[in-house]
Simulated assay, not measured.
Amino acid sequence: MIAIFSDTHSTSGHELTGDALNAAREADAVVHAGDFTSEAALEAFQSECDHLFPVHGNADDPSVKDRLPTARVVEADGIRIALTHRREGGQTGLAMFGRSRDADVVVSGHTHRPTVIETDDVLLLNPGSHADPRGNRPGFAVLEPRGTDDADDSATQIEGEIRTPEGTPLASIDYSNE
């Protein structure tokens, strides 16, 4: 399982509770699309997650920005994820960012709005913010590869959910780029 977070905006810690905390602790990989805000929040995530792959966001302290890249590609559970906090050009810019990195999924943050958009060749996912939703539902996401009996091994099939920190599903993900 891959757990996906963004926009923690904390000066003191990871702000993870309930199902979100369990997912961070149990995931094979955790990606965070930036805006920890403080080193304390980043380090709290690092202490909970065995395999954390973060990028920095626009609201991160300079000490966090110095430690993290602006963008990265992560391969976990057979899923290739292009990760950034935000990308100019909206949906089109995010899709182009993913295509240029041969990604199955583009994870971004910044809007604090849990969002899933399926395109023909890349899934766009914003998990929202588990700690600072700013008028949206608080959220985080989980993804897993979906087994297939199809003879086309080149297709990536992914299932998952955007959930509230307590575990209530906000959106289902059932995606294939075949």
Rank of each mutant, 00 (worst) to 15 (best):
G18V: 08
T168K: 09
E15S: 07
V30E: 03
R163S: 03
L42W: 00
I162V: 13
S6F: 08
A131M: 06
E15P: 00
A131K: 08
R113K: 14
S47C: 09
N126F: 03
F53Y: 15
V73S: 13
D7S: 11
A27G: 04
R67D: 07
A33D: 06
R25C: 07
D66K: 15
R137P: 05
D120N: 10
T168Q: 10
I173N: 09
V64I: 03
I162T: 03
E161Q: 10
A33S: 13
Y175I: 05
T115I: 07
E159V: 10
D121G: 07
T70D: 14
F45W: 13
H51E: 15
S108G: 03
R101S: 12
R80W: 00
R86K: 14
L124G: 04
Q157D: 07
T17W: 00
M96W: 09
S63P: 00
T115S: 14
H32E: 11
A95W: 10
I117W: 07
H130N: 12
R137D: 11
D132C: 06
L68K: 02
T164D: 08
G167Q: 05
L42H: 02
D152K: 01
F140D: 09
D152W: 00
R137Q: 13
R99I: 04
S154I: 04
T70G: 12
M1Q: 08
A29H: 05
L83E: 14
A59Y: 09
T84I: 14
I2L: 15
N126T: 01
A71Q: 15
L21Y: 11
E166M: 07
V73P: 06
P69R: 06
F97K: 00
E161P: 00
S176H: 09
R72H: 05
F45I: 03
E166N: 08
D150A: 10
A33R: 10
T168M: 10
S100W: 08
P165H: 04
H51N: 15
A3I: 07
V105S: 03
G18D: 14
Q91D: 11
L143T: 06
G147R: 09
A151N: 07
H51T: 12
P54H: 12
E48Q: 15
D104M: 08
L42Y: 10
G13D: 15
N136R: 01
F45N: 12
H85E: 07
A171M: 13
D35T: 04
H85C: 01
F5Q: 02
K65F: 00
D60H: 12
A40Y: 03
F5M: 06
A76Q: 08
A95F: 04
D121Y: 00
A82T: 13
F97T: 02
R113S: 11
A141Y: 07
G34Q: 04
A151S: 12
S12I: 12
L52P: 00
A103T: 08
A82N: 06
H51V: 11
G89C: 13
Q157N: 13
H14W: 10
S12V: 13
L170G: 01
E43Q: 15
A103G: 12
G167C: 06
L83I: 11
R113Y: 09
G18F: 06
D61N: 11
F36E: 08
V64K: 04
G167M: 03
T70L: 14
R163Q: 05
A44S: 15
L83P: 04
H110E: 10
C49W: 05
C49F: 10
D132N: 10
